[in-house]
Design a protein around this nucleic acid. Structure first.
Lengths: 241, 241
DNA sequence: ACCTGAACACCGTTCAAGT
DNA sequence: ACCTGAACACCGTTCAAGT
């Protein structure tokens, strides 16, 4: 590889940390816009995601995005679909004997896949999935659920309930993680613990009595795993055969 | 009742519909600010809730609110707590024989209490409850759960899981209701149904096979009731005694 | 067809100044 | 102590104008 004077210069070194404004000559595309949007979320969280910020990171103005994307709503949907497309969902060759563990693994993967992108899960709440990669995830989940001896109606509603749980938990977990990441946040969580412990037992006898278990987080995933276990056990209880 | 010329005039008649700017002489207070905020949410939804809008409805400027409320975050927390305080939670005299139905009634009341305020539930997601009325709700839930033969740890985590489900479902239900309320929204929901029905069965065999059950909503609460049943059955499965 | 500058109608929050 | 006007640093989206 040789450089001649007419070659474009290689990109200059730059401080990491903040997103670089990309070469404005490479044309915009949905792909690049979604890349930039996810980079913003990964770097600074969902609240930092704005059309103006994405445009600036791409070295252009906000109006330019609207040639490729209908608006912020569609951009969020595209981000979710991109994340769905990265989920490795092994076609699990549904095995009735290992059904419960297979369902749990599926929901866990969803949960953790979302958690890789901070609080992006918030944008996934209450969205009807219509984008292709997301539909693939649902279809695979349905395939798995159908191997569990459940009625079609239970399978259908369970394919709503389980992702709802994965998403809501990922959102809550992301806020928890975010808080624990900063010194003030860690302080705040300790204060909350102390606050609950100090609550007047006359007015809140049960909170006072259970302050320990209420605050207990043996592992970061313990609460998530508990709810997942409850839901899967409940589904098993609805088996017809 | 007689009017003399020095009496302040009674408030002039006005078009309903939009919130009136209240008498600026009656002093601001947290109470009145929360009243106004909830009125905005009830009238136009959570997205319409802004400090500026609340201030305008109270006949003042946005800066005035900050003497009574730390910021928008605190205002949202106060709104949630206000809603919690309106929930009628009959101390249910926990009865192990009717435990499952009592738990369901409790979670249903939470769900529907939130639904009375549009998509306010969104603001309740991922918030650690510390305000008094919300803590009362949790304490009562704990009391009820403790009558079910569950370990303290299961009781504690269930008191997270059940409200999480009530809140997430209320948020999703509110969006569904909101959409069905407008003609375009109703149209959109029909289009989604048609879209799923028309999905290529080769790529999405299970969605295609279950299009009927997936779209089936016999009553507005059917999905919520399904999930509630699943979770309560799962908790029953965790009974020690 | 794709991109842009400028504008419109908004945000939450701060702060010096008033009463 | 409580309130305010004005400002700061942002938003999403539109639209006429450019290439």
């Amino acid at each position: 590889m040789v450089f001649v004077s007419s070659d474009p210069l290689p990109p200059p070194p730059r401080l990491a940390g903040r997103a670089r404004a990309e070469d404005p000559r490479t044309p915009l595309s949905r792909e690049r816009i979604v890349d930039a949007a996810l980079a913003v979320v990964d770097a600074d969280g969902l609240d930092a995601l704005s059309m103006r910020r994405v445009a600036a990171d791409l070295g252009t103005g906000p109006a330019s995005l609207y040639a490729h994307v209908a608006g912020k709503e569609e951009l969020l949907e595209l981000c979710i679909d991109r994340v769905s497309s990265t989920l490795v969902i092994p076609d699990p060759d549904p095995d009735p004997d290992r059904w419960e563990e297979q369902v749990k693994t599926f929901v866990r993967d969803l949960h953790h896949g979302l958690l890789e992108h901070r609080d992006l899960a918030r944008a996934s709440l209450a969205r009807i999935p219509t984008a292709p990669a997301t539909l693939v995830v649902i279809d695979r989940l349905l395939a798995l659920l159908r191997a569990g001896g459940l009625s079609d109606q239970v399978v259908a509603w369970a394919s709503d309930l389980l992702p709802q749980y994965a998403v809501a938990s990922a959102y809550e977990a992301s806020l928890f993680i975010e808080r624990m990441a900063t010194p003030e946040g860690e302080r705040y969580m300790q204060d909350v613990g102390a606050y609950f412990a100090a609550l007047p037992a006359v007015r809140f006898p049960n909170i006072a009595a259970l302050a320990g278990p209420l605050m207990h987080n043996p592992t970061p995933d313990a609460r998530f795993e508990f709810g997942l276990d409850v839901i899967v056990r409940g589904l098993v209880a609805l088996r017809t055969g």
